[in-house]
Simulated assay, not measured.
Amino acid sequence: MNSEQYLILLTFLWVGFVSAISFMEAWLKFRAPGVTLPIGLSIGRLIFRGMNKVEWFFGLASLVLIIGSGSLGITTSFLLFIPIVVLLLQTTWLLPAMDKRAEMVISGAELPKSALHFYYIGAELVKVVLLFAFGVTLLGNL
């Protein structure tokens, strides 16, 4: 396999990973019998920390493959650049803010509603759509 083929593989694995966790697991866990809000938040914190690390692996490995191939155009590379910027924002702002709120709720605090989850979902949608477009573009280049 060449670097573009590895990049395609990584890209679609990343899309599948984010889609399964963010768009299925995240809300399904709260439907399980006996899962209270504090328990669900504790599980979510653990899963999203792990997911963030795996996403950084996908993002950094993709960058290495792009640099190694040197043959991708600016538009194609841009389709990967934005999801990495989104991941950076999630890592440095959204996840820490959501984690802090989760800790407070787990400790028994009652907090006003927050738009953070909607921002996170929006960021995930942007990331998945652009990564999918990136992968499809790479497939078209084969």
Rank of each mutant, 00 (worst) to 15 (best):
V54D: 06
A123C: 14
N52A: 11
W56P: 09
S107G: 15
I39R: 11
L94A: 09
G59P: 04
F12P: 03
G40K: 04
S77H: 02
V64T: 14
G70S: 10
V129F: 13
L65N: 12
F132V: 05
A20V: 04
A20C: 13
F12V: 11
G68M: 12
V15Q: 00
N141V: 01
F57P: 04
L63T: 06
A109Y: 12
L41Y: 03
R31F: 00
F12D: 09
R45Y: 06
P83K: 03
F48V: 07
L88S: 11
F78H: 02
S3V: 01
T92D: 00
I8V: 12
L65E: 09
L116A: 04
F58N: 05
T137Q: 14
F58K: 05
L41W: 07
T36L: 06
G16T: 01
L80Y: 02
L130D: 04
L130C: 10
I67W: 15
L94C: 07
I82R: 02
F23W: 12
A133L: 06
W93D: 13
A109D: 15
G122K: 03
E110G: 10
E55D: 13
L9H: 00
G34P: 13
L65G: 11
S62N: 11
V105L: 02
K29D: 01
R45L: 14
W56I: 04
S71C: 00
H117R: 02
H117S: 08
L142I: 10
F134M: 05
L142K: 13
A123T: 11
I21G: 03
L95Y: 12
Q5R: 06
A102M: 03
G59K: 06
T75D: 10
N2S: 12
L87D: 00
A102L: 02
L41R: 11
L37S: 01
L125G: 08
L72Y: 09
S107I: 08
V136Q: 13
R49V: 07
M24W: 11
A109T: 07
D99I: 01
K127N: 12
T91S: 14
P96C: 10
L60V: 15
K100Y: 04
I74F: 12
F57D: 04
